[in-house]
Design a protein around this nucleic acid. Structure first.
Lengths: 214, 214
DNA sequence: GGGCACTCTAAGCGCCCGCTCAGCTTCGGC
DNA sequence: GCCGAAGCTGAGCGGGCGCTTAGAGTGCCC
């Protein structure tokens, strides 16, 4: 039922799961518009226009404007969770896995900035049920990161005073990259990922400081 | 021309500089509405209603809805910059001043969460000129924090690989508190401030780890 | 106590929003 | 070559938006 590529954690072509083609074009147009102006300031006419279609065409593929945001948010959070899970279940020690999680998570927020912006900052525009579904995914993201840090504390490699608070801070730090990252700025997503991995290892008091950077 | 209390860095009663009373009530109502629903999703009727006035009353005190946001943003950024400046020009060493800056900055973002949310996340809703004015203030905030970290590097107390990147990350971490902080949650603003001061000292590789916490 | 500045309201203007619907085109099956 | 399904458009609906205007109420100066 699915091609092989979309089942693994690799960086698949984004939005390939959205079909038919017109629906995907509309969704991509919506991501760009939402990221530029915000959900509420974006009109359905703008979205349809960017996709090269009439305003009415949107409603053939999506019931409402909110359903568009919901689909975007769902797919984005699935991807984010997938990134964190892949890193958390990797082979190295806690420091290596945490550095991996942070650098790849940050790389996604910087490299796919428009998507990440919508996914992370437009949550409140969703209705209660859709929002609850997304919040559950966020909690799973939190649990993955907390798990890695817990492992590090257990082995004595990390030294943290407040596990939940530190986890929250680490995720918050990574997520906020989507707000300030500038594609035309001096840093590449890879560079920011490496910098942030180092900063986070310091935050958890990792014993071997400059070791893990892959 | 001004009472003494508003010239120093103390926690003055917020919005006391906005007069007359009706204008202040409207502005406070706008802060609450913008924080709850976002600038674009907030109607002028909603703002006026919260302030207990008719929709038209808003336009006696403010030319447009955007001017309201501009005033809020300006006052908020002035306050944020004041907080950072006060800490940066304090008496202690770099570690103490950095911890002071982070804890008080975070305390503001948590304790005045609604204001901070609007101030930090609705920047894009401003027009070009107003936006440019606010961006200049943000750069000054950045410079204050960067200055402290530079001092610490100069004295050998801090060890950072990327000064600009680390500064950006520290500010980003603090600002994002406004997004996730929950007034009804388990943490007080003071606790988050203390936690974050510790995390930031770790990020800059401060030598005396658990010393500064006032 | 008349005039005036200030504050606020009721009513509403013009516009654009999310969304709908009747009808046109295209295309595969037989 | 006809038919129905699917995809899409042009026109437009009901409604709420930001903002304006005419005028009423209030208090202060002289």
């Amino acid at each position: 039922m699915s091609t092989a590529e979309e089942t693994r954690g690799g960086d698949t072509e984004p939005w390939s799961e959205v079909t038919p083609d017109a629906a995907r074009r509309l969704l991509i147009a919506a991501v760009e518009a939402f990221a530029e102006r915000g959900y509420h300031a974006t009109t359905t006419r703008d979205i349809a226009g960017r996709a090269g279609m009439s305003p009415a065409a949107l409603y053939i593929h999506y019931k409402t404007k909110e359903e568009l945001l919901h689909r975007i948010s769902r797919i984005g959070h699935d991807r984010a969770l997938d990134i964190l899970r892949t890193a958390a279940r990797g082979e190295g020690g806690p420091a290596e896995r945490l550095a991996d999680a942070v650098s790849s998570f940050v790389r996604w927020h910087a490299g796919r900035r428009t998507t990440a912006l919508v996914v992370q900052y437009e949550l409140d525009a969703l209705g209660p049920e859709a929002r609850a579904e997304i919040v559950a995914l966020r909690r799973q993201c939190d649990a993955e990161v907390r798990g890695i840090i817990e492992d590090g504390v257990a082995t004595g490699e990390f030294e943290v005073l407040d596990l939940k608070g530190t986890t929250l801070a680490v995720l918050s730090l990574c997520i906020d990259v989507a707000r300030w990252f500038n594609v035309d700025g001096p840093r590449t997503p890879d560079e920011v990922g490496a910098l942030y991995a180092d900063l986070v290892l310091r935050m958890v008091g990792a014993k071997a400081p400059a070791a893990a950077q892959k």
